[in-house]
Amino acid sequence: MRWWLPISLAGCIGVALLSLCTGPTVQHGLAIRLAIPHGITLGLRLTRIAAAAIVGASLSLSGVYLQNLLRNPLADPYVLGLSGGASLGVVMWIFCISIFSQITGLPHWVADMLGFGHTLPSFVGAALAMIACFWLGRRSGYGYLDPVRLILAGVIISTITGACMLLINSFLPDYDQTRIYFYLFGYISEITPRWLLIGTGGVLAVSWAIGLQQARRLDIASLSDIEAASLGVSMRRMRMTNFILSSVLTAASVAIAGPIGFVGLICPHIARRLVGPTHARLLVIAPIVGAALLIVADLITRVSGIMLDRPIPVGVMTALIGGPLFLYLMRDRTGWR
């Protein structure tokens, strides 16, 4: 059991190295080459791996917080509608750019730069979804967040944002529809801005440190509200902190890679199987597992782009890897009963 930290860390670094060394070659037709890159290629691959690792770790950490907050093993960053909110923010931004460009003749790329690509709109969208979810999830009279109400609010927000996206999409020209289509698949780019990576990495580090600092209280919060209160843990403050941390982490990761599902759901479960439910260990292992899973998914996406001519979207890959893994974990625990 004690070997899991070095093993998972080694696994994560190993897949990162494999991803770093895997790339296309055109020497004798297009093929995969395993070699340490250099020059521009090295920079591009490092950026992509760093983005995948940061997004995977953020989503996984967010999943740990949410599963604790909602006391629900099926909770993940997307169940609260945060991803839907971020995606709707981007879709509305593209819609506004389209209208604005038609009126003023301003090039799209200038407008894109004003919104820092999709970063600003997705962050604002996730923040608005978070506020809406918070407002709807409050338990009247008690003044704190009710897990059941929060989940219901999240489902409603996801449904509404999905419908709004479809509505806006139907009004857009073909070019913008294609942009939205590509965004919603999720994509980790080699040319993700450094400031965005550093910012998200900073958010991840702060959230991780706060989580570790209150690891004991997170363990206690897994018990019932009354038991937690009798042990001196303020559930009100705890839920608020968890909610804000998970929202910020999700918003930051959606800003980098678009909506990528399943990482936040599956990685906390894998980590729990490895090191048990103690949050002091879970909070260390879960981000590493998340980073490794997304790096592997991204590697397969890159390789499929070379071998099959069309890259399999990274969101699809995480679901394809995570789904059977989740089934295996479920089977292992319940034996299909």
Partner: peptide, 28 residues
């Protein structure tokens, strides 16, 4: 809309042909 950046770097082309409104060419 989405080019394989790494393959572009490997191939190092001297010309890229697009058919798109110049205002819509993605910044990346």
């Amino acid at each position: 809309l989405r080019l394989n950046t790494e393959l572009m770097t490997e191939l190092h082309p001297s010309r890229l042909i697009l058919q798109i409104d110049p205002a819509l060419i993605p910044a990346d």
